[in-house]
Design a protein around this nucleic acid. Sequence first.
RNA 1: GGCCCGGUGGUCAAGCGGUUAAGACAUCGCCCUUUCACGGCGGGAACACGGGUUCGAUUCCCGUCCGGGUCACCA
Length: 551
Amino acid sequence: MSDNLKLAELLFPDITKTPDDMEAQFPPRNLKEGARVTRLAPSPTGFLHFGNLFTGTVAYRTAKTTDGIFYVRVEDTDQKRKIEGAIEVMLGGLEAFGVKADEGVVGENVEKGDYGPYYQSQRKHIYHVFAKDLVSKDLAYPCFCSAEELDEIRAQQENEPQKGYWGKYAKCRTLTLAEIEENIKAGKPWTLRLKSPGNAENKCYIDDMIKGKIEMPENVQDIVLLKSDGIPTYHFAHAVDDHLMRTTHVVRGDEWMSSCPVHLQLFKCLGFKVPKYAHVAPIMKEENGGKRKLSKRKDPEAAVIFYVETGYPKESVNEYIMTLMNSNFEDWRKTNKDASIDAFPFNLKKMSVSGALFDMVKLNDVSKNVISLMNADTVYKYTAEWAKEYNKEFYELLIKDESYSKAILNIDRDTPKPRKDIACWSEVKDYVSYFFDELFENSYEMPENITAPMAEEILKAYMKVYGENDTKDEWFQRMKDLCEPLGYTPNVKEYKKNPEQFKGHVGDVSTVIRVAVTGRRNTPDLYSIMSLLGKEKVMERLDLALKHFSA
RNA sequence: GGCCCGGUGGUCAAGCGGUUAAGACAUCGCCCUUUCACGGCGGGAACACGGGUUCGAUUCCCGUCCGGGUCACCA
């Protein structure tokens, strides 16, 4: 038996399976031509970053547009980071915005699919099969260096452009079998390192789906494959998992770009076919003129839960993400107003190479459009669902009289040019507040050109003529009829021509009524509002206003 | 510092050798209008800089500057 084989047995005595067994156990998938298999591989930190959602959406769309498979694999190889309940939080956030796994981890400790387990912490034996194989092929070796020794090496390398564990710095690379046996017998902890066959003089090439063709020096680092607890590092797990799970397209953040040479080499050493890569740029945030990544600590919008709590519809967030993913999405949307987002021909190659600034204003605009297209029933349903969770008091008010609430939400909605003033459900309360006595407040703030006596005069006159069963035309006619006797003109154009001849125009008259009834200067159609409120409430508010202005 | 990547209006971005340098958001003006919103029309506003290559560069090459990423027994 060669030394390599002996070493492999020494290091992994319990491993009897071979890479071929693994290949047989996880055969290539039987999918139609061109179907892409993608994945999202979050660490279970319990915090779902907007970037995760973004990258996840890219992976998800990539699979969906090709009738492929999208799966979730949990990268829980760092035991220090593990947090209870994290999976539920992350999966929940993903699903809330339409990223649903076909396969893999689909719930806390719930897995689906034939390529599992999908928790990396449960795949130790699989990694060890390949680790053993690498050792037997003289492509990996145990390293007994302690953290202190590693620090020492780093200290020596101050003027060395190529840092790290490589070449002459890789002390354990040249250990003899006897020395290794001795160390193991002495119970020294070890990591397994790659015996990198690379040469920094050589180039390696990556053809990234998003970034394009890139050239980098070959990897020379003897990177750690297995940590001293036997759990793989990201690099090793990535190679083994994505190969065995038959991932065709690795979609991940572009912070991984620089480790591509390592990954390419690893795939080669393991005899795996290299998958396609798509490195997506991070979403940025503006900060005093500069850009930085959306920060978990500083930016509330970095957390996906923020959108749930604020009440952005799933559709809005999806649409916004789409505009960031493929800039032709908005054009497509314009001509396909009612089409499902699934019908959009998403294209990885149209992704932006550099990170886009997160734009809340744009999100709001997108969301207003989305919501404006919903009917009142839908808006009601979503608002109620949101309020039930995040604003109980408002929820009670909203459901007290469902048809009343729906009627409110239907004002100016069921028209060819619907209003666009709701961007998220948490805004609805304020939008409808004056319809509920419990929320109604009035500070009677009039435009500057309307004095209290003027308001008083208009209110008095209006109260005499208000008709509760008027049609809209009749209602407005009354408003106009009020004008002339009081020195206003019903004709806005006329007023503009000779402003000095009038106290104001019909707009001013209706503003007085509007403020009295709603407490606001700007509202949707006043007639609709007053009809919904009903005579009793209207008169009550007019009366209150009159008292205010005559005081 | 080494290695990568990027730099088109305030933002997202098309264009990739010859364009009046699209479009969207934001902003401003006008029109519509009982307010606001919607809608319509219009305005301001950009190829980081310096060298090449070329008849011609936003587009290609080099350099500078500026941003970003990465150099762990983290992912």
